[in-house]
Structure formats: C-alpha cells, structure tokens
C-alpha cells in the first residue's frame, strides 16, 4: 500500500470515530438533561401521532422556515434535498449489489436526480451564502465559521461535480478502498488530486460535525418546544430534580 493510502485509512477511521462517538455523546447528553417544565410552542399536538406529524412537517418540509422566510426556505430546502439525494447516491460506494439495500441505491430517482443533485446543492449553497453576505441582519449574526461551513460544503459539491463530469476517477478502485475500510482489508486509494481534495473535505466535515452547528440535525429532535405534548392539565409533568425540591419541603402533599 502507498503511504498516501495508509494516511487516508487512518484519517477515515479517526473521522468516523469522532463523528460517531461525538454525536452519540451529544445525543446522550440531550437525553440525560431533563426538561423540568412544559414549554411546548402552542398550538401543539395532543397525541404522539400528532408529534410525529409535527416533526414530519418540520424535518421534511421545513414548515416553520417556510412561514418565516421564503428565500431561505427555497435555498435551504433545495440544499438539504440534494444533500439527501447525494447521500443515497453515495451508498453505492459502500453497498455491494448483492446487499438487500441495493434496490434502494439503484432507484431510478436516486441515480438520475442524484446525478444532478450536485448542481442543485451548489445553487442552494450559493443562495445561502449570498444571503449571509447581502442581508445585513444575517451578516451581523455570522461568524467566520458560518461562512467556512458553507464554503466547505460547496468545495465538497464542487469537487464531486468535477469528478462526475470532468476529471473522472477510478471508481472501482475507490469502492475497493472504501469497502476495505469496513472489512479491515485495506486497499490502495486512487491518487488523483480532485478525489483527494473531495475526501479531505468530507473527512473535515465529519470531524467538525459534533462540535459545530451541524448538531442541528440531531438537536432538532430534542427541542422540548417541539416534541412535548400539550397535556399539562391532564398529566402531571415532573422532573427528577423538581421532585427532589418537593420532597424537601413536603408542600405538595
């Protein structure tokens, strides 16, 4: 194996561990910290099914964002949809054709639309970037990391498109490299620059995920304002530390 391949094997493992351990850690923290009070934003659902529906509208349709600002919605939604398509399309590099998941990867939508998703993603990202620069309010709240995050993903999308349309890489060898990571049977990585740039940025994105605002993806599901049922009069809600306070003075008995 080439030194370069060894380096990338190591980088990939580090990135994967950072991502998985980091995000799991964060999720466990969100689960551990209690929500002492009912703070659902009303009108809120009265049933679990209602909560699932509420999340459906938020996660799939970005409903609140739609109500808030149409431009950000358009750019943001297109970006995330293409991200999802690109994700599915990339599954073919990690799933072999005899896997039961293959039909999913092979879906016409994924393979055909996925092919163009890169363009859509760049379009969405460019819109979000523009908004950050040109809208005075959004510029005011932006830190360097907010711009860099967009540039990073644009870089990933850009190099991805380059490989798809201009500088093709050795897909067979790439797939062997990636499958090798999973089966601990390490293989050489094609060494063309565009691919290396693409992979380096992906590794970077994975590493910053648990320490950045990308935590919005898991965090969204832990906002008490959204997941809580609207039933405080029917069902008593009490946290562990709330109960401890009660036990101390006994005034609730």
């Amino acid at each position: 194996m080439t030194a370069l391949s060894i380096l990338y094997v190591i980088l990939f493992y580090v990135a994967m561990i950072t991502l998985i351990v980091g995000v799991t850690n964060k999720i466990l923290q969100y689960i551990r910290v209690p929500a002492p009070l009912k703070i659902a934003i009303t009108p809120a659902p009265l049933t679990r099914t209602g909560v699932v529906y509420r999340f459906f509208t938020e996660v799939v349709l970005f409903n609140s964002l739609w109500r808030a600002t149409k431009w950000t919605w358009i750019f943001g939604w297109i970006f995330h949809l293409s991200l999802l398509l690109a994700f599915f399309r990339h599954l073919r590099y990690v799933i072999s054709p005899d896997s039961f998941l293959w039909p999913l990867v092979d879906l016409q939508v994924v393979q055909s639309f996925g092919h163009y998703a890169g363009f859509a993603m760049l379009f969405g990202l460019a819109g979000l970037f523009g908004r950050r620069i040109f809208v005075d309010r959004v510029r005011y709240i932006s830190s360097p990391s907010d711009y860099l995050m967009l540039l990073l993903i644009m870089g990933i999308a850009g190099t991805g498109l380059l490989m798809a349309y201009v500088a093709h890489t050795d897909i067979v060898q790439l797939k062997a490299f990636i499958m090798g990571l999973f089966f601990l049977d390490w293989q050489n990585l094609p060494s063309d620059l565009v691919l290396l740039a693409h992979l380096t940025m992906v590794i970077g994105l994975m590493m910053i995920f648990p320490v950045s605002k990308l935590l919005h993806a898991p965090g969204l599901f832990f906002a008490p304002t959204r997941y809580q049922l609207d039933n405080p009069r029917e069902k008593r809600h009490i946290s562990e530390w709330g109960a401890e306070i009660e036990a101390k003075d006994g005034r609730n008995s």
């Binding site: 209690p34 964002l65 600002t69 950000t72 950050r132 919005h216 965090g219 008490p224």
Partner: peptide
C-alpha cells in the same frame, strides 16, 4: 437542568429566520 437551554445553545445554524 434545562434540556431546552442545552439544546438551544447547540442547534442554532444562524439561518436568520
């Protein structure tokens, strides 16, 4: 003590909505 605070500190993406 407050899940809301902990989660809200992390999840803002500065979208400006």
């Amino acid at each position: 003590k407050y899940r809301s605070l902990q989660v809200f500190m992390d999840t803002c993406v500065k979208c400006g909505a």
